[in-house]
C-alpha cells in the first residue's frame, strides 16, 4: 500500500513577465505522507504560495505551471480534465488560500454559502444540515452563525467558517496557506490548537504553509524549508530543530526571539530576501550566507541525505557547523 498522500515530481512553475518567463519553482520534488501535518516555510518571494496554488492547480496568469507531475490518488492533477478536477476539489482535497476569511460573500448568509458549496457538488442541502452542524462543531462555532452575515462575525470566526467549509465534504488532504495571518495572537493560538486536534482525530493530511517559523515548528510533523523556489532542508520536525544541516534553517531558528532566552549577538543572515538570480550558477543562498566560500558560487548544490528522511542542500555541510 502506497503511503504517500500526494507526490510532486519535477514541478516547474513560473511567471510570465513582459518579455520572458521566469521560473519560481524549479524541479521541485516532494512526497507528502498520509495523515501528517507537513509544514512549508519560506520568506516572502520564496515561492511557497505559488507552490500551494500549483498543488491545487489554481495558478492564475501571469503565473503558469510549466511542467511536472502532481500525483494524487494515482492520477496526475495537472493532466486532469477541468470537470474531473472540479469534482475532486473539496471532496478529496481542499485549499484555504491566504486571507481566506475575506473570501466569504458579504451579502449572503453563511447558511446559503454552505448550501452553494453543496449544490455545486450535486448534494441536496436540505439533507445535509447534520453534516454542516458537525463541521461547525469541529471548529467550535455555534450553529447560530449560519444565520449571520460575514460582517457580523469576527475575523477569527470567519476564518473558522472557511475552515469548516473546506472540511465539509470530508477531504483527505487540506492545504492551508497562512491560515492565521492577520489574526490576533490569542485567536491564532486557539485556531492552531483546534486544527491540530481535528487533524489528529480524523487523520486528515495537512499541508501547512507559513512564513512564521515558530508556529510551523509548533504544529508540524515534517518540515520543508524553501529558499528561492527550492527545498534547502527537509526532515522530521525534531531532527530539523536539533540537528540543523542548512545555515538558513539554523540561523532563522537562532534569530527567533523567545521569551526568557537572552540573545548574545547571534550570527545574522546577510543581505535581503527576494534578490533571486535565476542564472546564478552557484547556491542561491550564497549572498545571504555568513559561512559561504568561493566554491558556493560555482556549483549548484544537490539535495543530499543527512540521516533517515533528513535532506539538505549545502556543499559546506558539515564544515560550516564546526565553526558555530
Amino acid at each position: 500500500m502506497d503511503n504517500s498522500a500526494i507526490e510532486i515530481k519535477n514541478l516547474n512553475v513560473g511567471y510570465n513577465t513582459e518579455n520572458s518567463f521566469s521560473l519560481i519553482i524549479k524541479n521541485f520534488n516532494l512526497s507528502i505522507k498520509k495523515g501528517e501535518i507537513f509544514g512549508i516555510a519560506g520568506e516572502s518571494g520564496s515561492g511557497k504560495s505559488t507552490l500551494a496554488q500549483a498543488i491545487y492547480r489554481s495558478v492564475k496568469y501571469p503565473g503558469e505551471i510549466d511542467s511536472g507531475e502532481i500525483i494524487f490518488k494515482d492520477k496526475d492533477i495537472l493532466k486532469m480534465e477541468a470537470n474531473d478536477l472540479r469534482k475532486i476539489r473539496v471532496t478529496l482535497f481542499s485549499f484555504i488560500p491566504q486571507a481566506a476569511m475575506n473570501a466569504l460573500n458579504p451579502v449572503r448568509k453563511i447558511r446559503y454559502q454552505f448550501y452553494d458549496l453543496l449544490l455545486a457538488h450535486g448534494i441536496l442541502p436540505e439533507k445535509s444540515n447534520d453534516k454542516i452542524f458537525s463541521v461547525l462543531k469541529m471548529v467550535r462555532l455555534n450553529e447560530s452563525v449560519l444565520d449571520n452575515f460575514p460582517h457580523e462575525l469576527s475575523g477569527g470566526m470567519r476564518q473558522r467558517t472557511v475552515i469548516a467549509m473546506s472540511l465539509l465534504l470530508n477531504p483527505e488532504l487540506v492545504i492551508l496557506d497562512e491560515p492565521t495571518t492577520g489574526l490576533d495572537v490569542l485567536v491564532e493560538h486557539e485556531i492552531l490548537k483546534d486544527l491540530k486536534n481535528i487533524q489528529r482525530k480524523y487523520g486528515i493530511t495537512m499541508i501547512f504553509i507559513t512564513h512564521d517559523l515558530a508556529i510551523l515548528y509548533e504544529i508540524s510533523d515534517r518540515i520543508a524549508m524553501i529558499y528561492a523556489g527550492e527545498i534547502v532542508e527537509l526532515g522530521p520536525r525534531d531532527d530539523m530543530l536539533e540537528h540543523s544541516t542548512h545555515p538558513y534553517n539554523f540561523l532563522l531558528l537562532k534569530n527567533i526571539p523567545r521569551i526568557g532566552v537572552k540573545m548574545n549577538n547571534p550570527i545574522k543572515l546577510k543581505g535581503n530576501p527576494s534578490n533571486f538570480n535565476e542564472n546564478f550558477p552557484g547556491c542561491q543562498f550564497y549572498e545571504r550566507c555568513p559561512f559561504s566560500k568561493a566554491v558556493c558560487s560555482e556549483k549548484h548544490p544537490d539535495l543530499k541525505e543527512y540521516s533517515n528522511e533528513h535532506y539538505y542542500r549545502c556543499i559546506l555541510f558539515p564544515e560550516w557547523k564546526q565553526g558555530v
Binding site: H189, K196, A214, E218, I256, R258
Partner: peptide, 24 residues
C-alpha cells in the same frame, strides 16, 4: 512579568506566544 505573571490575561498571552521549541 514574563517569568511570574499575576494576571490571567498576561498568562494567556504568554501561553499563546509562539516558540519553535514548544509543541501544540
Amino acid at each position: 512579568i514574563l517569568t511570574s505573571p499575576h494576571d490571567g490575561y498576561t498568562k494567556a498571552l504568554i501561553e499563546a506566544a509562539s516558540d519553535p521549541y514548544k509543541r501544540i
